[in-house]
Amino acid sequence: MTGFLLRRLGGAVFVLLSLTVILYAVFYVAPGDVAQIACGPRCSPAQVAQVTEQLRLDDPVYTQYGHFLQGIVAGRDFSTGTGVDHCSAPCLGVSYQSDQQVMRLILTKLPVTGSLVVGAFVCWILLGVGTGVLSVWRRGRITERLLTWLTLAGTATPVFVIGLLLIIVFCSTLQWLPSPTYVPFTEDPEQWAWGLLLPWVSLALIESAKYARLTRSSMLETLAEDHVRTFRAYGVGERAVIGRHALRGAVAPVIALSALDFGSMFGGAVLTESLFGIPGLGRELVHAVKVVDLPVVVGMVLVTGFFVVLANAVADMLYALADRRVVLS
């Protein structure tokens, strides 16, 4: 186990390092005139020269990349024109637009995205696994066919379509809910939950479809196994066979998939946040993209990559822990 962990860790560090190189090349080297981008389209040549000086953009590319990497590992100093701003590790640079440190920006947005993802996660696991179990329990009947088509429709609907329809139905037409707004949990837990209700439901409706299908197919596979037949021969009832033994077969894949989804969504549920106006990582990224704020874009992508790599490793480990047949190597 320890050997596996160390190898996975080494692999993860390698992947993240490569990611910094790729991102640096794509975003800082490829576009060419970074100083102009940093300064803005209306900058005069003199101002551009000043920015070049300030950001040390006339250094060779590898030196600049070195500084970038050094910032992540050990922190670095930025000249602000009037003084020096220290950015401690892990430093992802300073926004061109707001002069705010990217890491601080991400940290302020993380709880918002966290609220969205954690709440939605609880909803979609309950809904997804519940639907899967129900469709196995009622297999061969009309309920099963109905659930199968519903989950299929769920996988086929883009989250922004369902979200848009939910807003129109519940906020505008029926007026049962106020328009979704984000209120921090620490300010008012009740408002927080009401404001996030629709985003949670939209994400859960889409995501749960995947889990319903996974749960169902894993359970059906287990039900076809010999040991289940043996249980039945011993007189174990259908309820216990499904609830205790078949469900066990679904645990490992569901846990592994949850870890993956959880990780990738932490990088920002971009569409959901944009649609509902939730000021999290995803919406910040869309904004940064529209104004070409390179350090913010690169920082966000890197942090998302970090979460994905982490989630992959965690998923593998959880899978092995939940399913003893898997040998880690």
Binding site: V15, F27, A30, P31, L285, K290, V292, V301, V308
Partner: peptide, 22 residues
Amino acid sequence: SRITDINVALPLMVIALGLLAV
């Protein structure tokens, strides 16, 4: 296989957004 691992770590929507910007 390493390159494939790196590819897996690239979050599709996020990278696509970033690339479309530059």
